[in-house]
């Protein structure tokens, strides 16, 4: 399967005007790929993740297309999109605790969900048991209420449920942010295992944590202020980042072992630009140590080396 996103624009309507949260992104995800989507708050990664499955509230599709296996996804059409959700495109919610209805037994909730999708619970039952066993949960979990489960168990139930219909695309939005390191590792490894076993074809992992992406993603896509800035295989991105933003970002992350007395790390001065009225040209130029005259012209997101893309006039060097 392939996901092809072409010049996608999604804005938020507010009283003060349109916030250009996602301002023209183009990329593709191939079969079996785990793509990491990284960036800091306000960069548009969450908007992108949400747009692919459900435009909510004030979000408005302003342009661009998304195709899954050659089929155009009707993102703006709530009802038409409903046919794709869960079966073709699925999402793992961030907080498993809130995702489960507290007054429903797990099994009942699953059967209701499947019914609403026109899938027979009875037919799916054996596969459900198999997958639960795979993540270390027994059938008795279906008879329990969410409150009887631990946080880790709930997370696993939610992951099994989200992938039950073998979706082509799985979106994991900030799945590991609020978790302890041990649970974080287990959940991240589960994502890889699901891909390896063919439960999902491709995965988009959205997070601000580059280190987790290095562990499990095949490629990493970095976003800044609503635009794409760099894309590369995970190992290459962390070892040899080409875009100044990526370089500065990686430079500000302490590894276990780095001590302030030995080497003082630096952050990135300044703040991301307002998305209500973004500056022309490269959006990072106000904070970029390499900025020069040409940066007032927006650099295109182009291939600078085999398999590597960047949006920077100086990156091709």
């Amino acid at each position: 399967m392939t996901l092809a996103v072409d010049d996608l624009r999604v804005y938020y309507r507010t009283l003060k005007g349109d916030v250009k949260a996602l301002d023209g992104v183009t990329f593709s995800v191939s079969d079996g790929e785990i793509m990491g989507l990284a960036g800091e708050s306000g960069c548009g990664k969450t908007t992108l993740g949400k747009s692919l499955i459900r435009l909510d509230g004030r979000m408005q599709l302003m342009g661009g297309t998304v195709s899954l296996d050659g089929v155009r996804l009707p993102l703006a059409d709530e009802r038409a999109m409903s046919a794709f959700r869960f079966k073709d495109v699925s999402i793992v919610p961030q907080y498993a605790m809130s995702a489960l209805n507290p007054i429903r037994k797990i099994g009942r909730m699953i059967s209701e969900l499947l019914d609403s999708r026109g899938v027979s619970y009875r037919d799916t039952r054996p596969e459900l048991s198999r997958r639960l066993a795979l993540v270390g949960l027994g059938d008795e979990i279906l008879d329990r209420f969410p409150i009887e489960l631990s946080g880790g168990q709930k997370q696993r139930v939610v992951m099994v449920l989200s992938t039950l219909m073998d979706p082509s695309l799985l979106i994991a939005d900030e799945l590991t942010s609020a978790l302890d390191v041990s649970t974080q590792k287990a959940v991240a490894e589960m994502l890889v295992e699901f891909r390896d076993r063919g439960f999902v074809k491709s995965t988009i992992v959205i997070t601000h944590d580059l280190a987790v992406l290095y562990q499990i993603a095949d490629t990493i896509l970095v976003m800044y202020a609503g635009k794409l800035v760099e894309k590369a295989p995970a190992g290459e991105l962390t070892r040899d980042p080409r875009h100044p933003y990526t370089r500065l970002l990686i430079g500000s992350l302490p590894e276990v072992g780095a001590r302030i007395s030995e080497k003082r790390l630096q952050g990135i001065a300044g703040r991301p630009p307002s998305l209500l009225d973004p500056p022309s040209g490269c959006r990072f130029r106000a904070r970029c140590p390499l900025a020069f005259a040409k940066c007032v012209e927006e650099p295109p997101f182009v291939e600078i080396a085999p398999g590597r893309h960047a949006a920077c006039w100086k990156a091709a060097a």
Binding site: K185, A211, V256
Partner: peptide, 16 residues
């Protein structure tokens, strides 16, 4: 255990 679970940018997680 904590140290082995911390995700790093230069090394992959080893076996638990």
């Amino acid at each position: 255990m904590l140290l082995s679970c911390v995700p790093q940018l230069t090394a992959k997680w080893d076996a638990t």
